[in-house]
Structure formats: C-alpha cells, structure tokens
C-alpha cells in the first residue's frame, strides 16, 4: 500500500517537472520563465521526496532535511536571478505590466 502511494507521489512529481519544462519553452520573457522555473520544480522535488520517504521509510530524516534545504534555496536563487535581470535592464515583453520594484525605485529617488 505504502509502495503504491510512493509511486503515485513520484509520478505526480514527474508531471510537475514536465509542466515546468513546457512552461520554460512557452513563456515569453525572463520574469514569467522565472515564475515557471521556480515554483513547479520546487513542488515536483517535494513530491518526489515524499514518494521516496514512502518507499524507504528508514531514510526519512535525511530526505526531510533535503526537502527543507530545497525549500530554502530554490526560491532564493530564482528571486536573486530575477532581481539581477531586473537590475541589468532585461525588458518585459509587455511594457504595461505591473512592476513594483521599478515603482519603488522611482519613489525612493
């Protein structure tokens, strides 16, 4: 029973990864790509890790630590990349998009 639950989790994680890969190909500019490339891989990794915990319950502690580390680092790296590309002046595909960082900078100047 636990085995089948584990396989179900892993397959769901793979689906999340595939959706993120399709999104990376189809999204127009770097900010929306960042959105796709950060959120669904985190979800997929968490699902695969929970599947692995169901398959091998003795590894639970190490795998939970791994999941916590990924939850910490994955959003951080994508936010840093998005901020760096904003600073480098990568344009939006639609200039009328809401850009709160630009508004904040204009206010503070």
């Amino acid at each position: 029973m636990l085995t089948y639950l584990g396989y179900l989790f892993i397959v769901l994680g793979m689906v999340a990864f595939i959706i993120s890969a399709i999104g990376l190909l189809r999204m127009p500019d770097i900010y929306s790509r960042m959105h796709v490339g950060a959120k669904s891989p985190t979800m997929g990794t968490i699902l695969v890790i929970s599947g692995a915990i169901c398959l091998e319950p003795t590894w639970a502690l190490k795998l939970l630590l791994l999941g916590a580390f990924i939850l910490l680092t994955n959003p951080l790296s994508s936010s840093v990349i998005a901020r760096a590309s904003h600073k480098a002046g990568v344009p939006h595909v639609n200039p009328k998009d809401i850009d709160e960082l630009r508004d904040y900078k204009e206010e503070s100047q």
Binding site: L72, T73, L76, S79, V80, R83
Partner: peptide
Amino acid sequence: SSFILKTA
C-alpha cells in the same frame, strides 16, 4: 544586495 539574499 537585497534583504532576502542577506537573511537567507
């Protein structure tokens, strides 16, 4: 660098 990066 940003506040998020520093804290994390």
